[in-house]
Design a protein around this nucleic acid. Structure first.
Length: 604
RNA sequence: GCCGACGUGGCGCAAUUGGCAGCGCAGCCGAUUUGUAAUCGGCCGGUUAUCGGUUCAAGUCCGAUCGUCGGCUCCA
């Protein structure tokens, strides 16, 4: 179902990038008086490396040529990378004036932690890597010497701020990102891939294709969808809605404003207060823009009267736009907005039903992702971490976690475990996809919640005649329409399959005298609910084809004297080129079939 | 929110050391009536993001604000 990337420590590129990080740190240190540069950490990452510095002045891109020049000099010196194992005290002595290293050494001495802050099983060995005058606390491995790095196969990419240890309460360090490869050809290919990726960036394509805009007048993070963009949204949501109906989900509607007190009782105010927009005061009641549906759905469940165990599982789905006060710097096109439309659902069920309900949700998500032919995603089983916001109830966590695991196994889903990623109310399975620039986004999510129903006194009457608290399963299929659309635009590079395309057919009359016939065919297509436009401009056919092609319209129907006479259209496919003249009835059948199958036609 | 960079007609860009804000596309008007990726000509369009400062003179220099981009943190 998913793939895992194999970035093993033995990987040649891993060594190159790790070593390049050291060489960069060495170069940066040389640029300042001794002792002025404090170094933090510098690991290899996908496609490259970074290093975090605490510097007397901020570095900018203008410093890159100087740093790169010094890096090349260090490479030319062919310093061997030598490993030394040391005691914690020896390490402290070496890094006496390096506070970040000292903190790392303390951590290593205590046993070390993994990337999620959980303790390591084995106590790590403290080791140095030395090349020339540069010594770094590092577990390695590295290339044999700096001379093994190719001076024309690395490049510094960007400078960014990053909090020490990823904690925003800590000092912000200067992070420099670089990319490194075995040779110049690989570097060139990488830069070319980045260039190509930028072309399919949904923010660029969204503008080029006229799907959505942002406006300073409306405010940041609030996308404005054009008629074309709205069609895509509508088709996406219609599809999920129809599928949900066949899967036994029921749709509800609960509005956009909610009394703050409900969020106080549900626990959201405490845990998610900072993602809510500021309160609105209406005389003696305080309202909030709805940032999530759960409390509303539970309230609705309660208002509908007493529920028997026979009604469970009860599944409330809703496509409601939610408002989240995302920090300015986090907004990113459609991938991160302040007004997001979740394809949300809450399943009220018994503890025994968790596994089958989780399975049902998994099946639905898989079916939807398969329809879009999105296969490049990972499934993360997000569990409770050792500390933090998690509600304490070991037995319930255990139970829910096991139910999720066995459902994932039963449906043969490949997943990885991440501790400390769970919601405050329970474990979850998240589907993660990458955008064209390699950034990971959470799409689908299925979460088990055994906390909120109790807090809001949600109950059902069991077989025994007594009241019981149901388990709540939160579940989003695509996650949010806006973000999923961002991924779809990039996934298809704007070439939407016919069923999603805002304009499905462009009529291209060759000369003015063919307008009448073109409009007649267009009417016929509209009658069959095909989205069609007629290019009536006094342009040449070639220009009309070019424009339709650039707008990524799936079909162009060229009509001239021959077609008008024969009652045909000359079909040109965006993906397959000229398909020749065909009778309108045949063409209509083809379109209808392609739409019904939600077919994805690859370029030939 | 934090670190850094960037904001010039709808879009893509240009404007020597501070010295009259330009080009292409799009749009509009006219001519052209064309057979599978751009027909020709004309016209319209900008208080250079906003506010303030330095200067004889600011798109250009300085400051603040807003927004965007790349990261960090957070998250659908």
């Amino acid at each position: 179902m998913s793939n895992s990337n194999s970035n093993s420590n033995d990987d040649k590129l891993y060594r190159i990038r790790h070593s390049a990080a050291h060489v960069m740190a060495q170069a940066v240190m040389e640029m300042f008086p001794p002792g002025d540069v404090k170094i933090a950490i510098g690991p290899p990452i996908e496609d490259g490396f970074y290093y975090d510095f605490d510097l007397p002045r901020p570095l900018t891109q203008d410093d890159f040529p100087e740093i790169e020049k010094r890096m090349r000099q260090i490479i030319a010196q062919k310093y061997p990378f030598e490993r030394k194992e040391v005691s914690a005290d020896e390490a402290r002595q070496q890094f006496a004036d390096q506070p970040y290293k000292l903190e790392l050494i303390d951590g290593l001495e205590k046993g070390g932690t993994d990337e999620y802050g959980n303790p390591l099983k084995e106590k790590p060995v403290i080791s140095f890597y030395v090349d020339g005058s540069f010594v770094d606390l590092c577990r390695g491995p590295h290339v044999e010497s700096t001379g093994r790095l190719n001076p024309s196969a690395f490049k510094l990419m960007s400078v960014a701020g990053a909090y020490w240890r990823g904690d925003e309460r800590n000092k912000m360090l200067t992070r420099i990102y670089g990319t490194a490869w075995e040779n110049a050809t690989q570097l060139g290919e990488h830069m070319h891939r980045l260039e190509e990726a930028r072309k399919r960036d949904h923010r660029k394509l969204g503008k080029d294709l006229g799907l959505f805009f942002f406006s300073d007048d409306v405010g940041p993070g609030i996308p404005l969808f054009t008629p074309k963009g709205e069609i895509v949204r509508y088709e996406m949501e219609k599809y999920v809605r129809e599928l949900q109906t066949t899967y036994g989900y029921q749709h509800v509607w609960t509005g956009h404003l909610v009394k703050e007190d409900l969020y106080r009782r549900s626990g959201h105010l405490e845990n998610y207060g900072d993602v809510m927009f500021p309160p609105m005061q209406d005389e003696d009641i305080t309202l909030r823009l709805k940032p999530m549906n759960c409390p509303s759905h539970m309230t609705l469940f309660k208002e509908m009267g007493k529920h028997s165990y026979r009604e469970l599982p009860l599944r409330f789905a809703e496509f409601c736009t939610l408002y989240r006060y995302e920090k300015r710097g986090e907004l990113s096109g459609l991938a991160r907005v302040r007004a997001l439309t979740q394809d949300d659902c809450h399943v009220f069920c018994t503890p025994e039903q968790i596994e089958s309900e989780f399975g049902l949700a998994l099946k639905l998500v898989s079916e939807v992702l398969a329809t879009y032919q999105m296969h490049d995603y990972k499934v993360r089983l997000s569990l409770r971490g050792s500390e933090g916001k998690y509600v304490q109830d070991d037995e319930k966590w255990e139970k829910a976690t096991n139910a999720l695991k066995s459902a994932l196994d039963a449906y043969d889903v490949d997943y990885f475990v991440a501790e400390g990623e769970a919601a405050f109310y329970g474990p979850k399975a998240d589907f993660l996809a990458k955008d064209v620039l390699g950034r990971e986004w959470q799409l689908s999510t299925i979460q088990v919640d055994f906390i909120q129903p109790a807090r809001l006194n949600v109950e059902y009457i069991g077989e025994d005649g007594a009241a019981h608290t149901p388990v709540l399963i939160h579940r989003a299929v695509t996650g949010a329409t806006e973000r999923f659309l961002a991924m779809l635009i990039e996934h298809f590079a704007g070439n939407f399959p016919l069923w999603l395309a805002p304009v499905q057919v462009m009529m291209i009359p060759i000369a003015d005298r063919h307008l009448e016939y073109a409009n007649k065919i267009a009417q016929q297509l509209k009658g069959a609910t095909i989205r069609v436009e007629v290019d009536e401009r006094a342009e040449r056919m070639n220009a009309k084809i070019r424009d339709a092609q650039l707008q990524k319209v799936p079909y162009m129907f060229v009509v001239g004297d021959k077609e008008a006479e024969a009652g045909k259209v000359a079909v040109r496919s965006r993906d397959r080129g000229d398909m020749g003249a065909q009778p309108i009835t045949d063409v209509l059948a083809m379109l209808k079939d392609e739409i019904a199958r939600k077919a994805i036609i690859l370029k030939s």
